[in-house]
């Protein structure tokens, strides 16, 4: 049981290492994805240490979910989801940050898991992922800098969207149950976490594939920046 959790949590390191190797080659548009993966890695390490010392992992997790949501939104902005709606992007980011501050400081609950923020941010991320997938289908690979003719499963943007949809939908459901205080029952909590473990493993592997297939830099941007002095 414990091993399984470790395995599921640390599977994100596969993506993290691929990201480390490919970082300089990958198009800037996809960098936020790598930041998300690295954030997750760091958070797993911190959580692991705290857990070993019997300390609460609530604070670092609360901070992690805020950063994760922001960076993912940035990624979707790079995908052009907020095109012509800049104000929407900043409103969403600002709104989420305000909600986070309110829940953690004004609500004074930084010591426990912040449910509201998780519910709302998961919801927003799933909505944006749906948008991104549909955009990918309509405008094809061009705007996502992805090589034509490749299978969808070698398509980084598609993989990322599928990953976020699966993960955050499930997270949303779990958070709703927590929100209603249903984590009181030990067995129920363990069972739900069990499912979450598998989903986490699956999504981490999807992320690893996504980082692996993230499109490279475009040559011509390099050329046009060649200095003349």
């Amino acid at each position: 049981m414990f091993l399984k959790v470790i395995f599921s949590a640390f599977s994100i390191f596969i993506a993290g290492i691929i990201g480390l190797i490919r970082f300089r080659k990958i198009n800037k548009m996809y960098w936020p994805m790598i930041f998300v993966v690295w954030l997750a890695c760091i958070n797993e390490i911190i959580s692991f240490c705290l857990f070993k010392n019997n300390l609460s992992t609530a604070i670092n997790n609360n901070i992690y979910v805020l950063m994760e949501a922001m960076v993912l939104l940035f990624l979707f902005r790079n995908f052009g989801i907020f095109n012509r709606r800049k104000w929407l992007f900043w409103t969403v980011c600002g709104g989420l940050a305000a909600l986070w501050l309110w829940e953690n400081f004004i609500g004074g609950k930084i010591w426990c898991i912040s449910s509201w923020f998780r519910i709302v941010s998961s919801f927003i991320i799933v909505l944006t992922s749906i948008d991104a997938i549909s955009k990918l289908m309509v405008f094809g690979s061009q705007e996502f800098l992805i090589i034509r003719g490749r299978s969808l499963f070698a398509n980084a943007a598609f993989l990322i969207c599928i990953g976020t949809i699966i993960f955050f939908t499930f997270k949303l459901l779990v958070e709703i149950f927590w929100f209603y205080g249903l984590n009181g029952s030990e067995i129920f909590r363990v069972k739900l976490y069990d499912i979450l473990t598998y989903i986490n493993l699956l999504v981490n592997l999807i992320y690893a594939l996504a980082v692996l297939w993230a499109p490279p830099k475009q040559r011509y941007t390099m050329l046009s920046f060649s200095p003349h002095w």
Binding site: I119, F123, L172, I176, F177, Y180, L182
Partner: peptide, 11 residues
């Protein structure tokens, strides 16, 4: 539980 399920279904 009932309320949680309703909320979840709604979402």
């Amino acid at each position: 539980i009932y309320h949680a399920v309703i909320f979840a279904s709604l979402v």
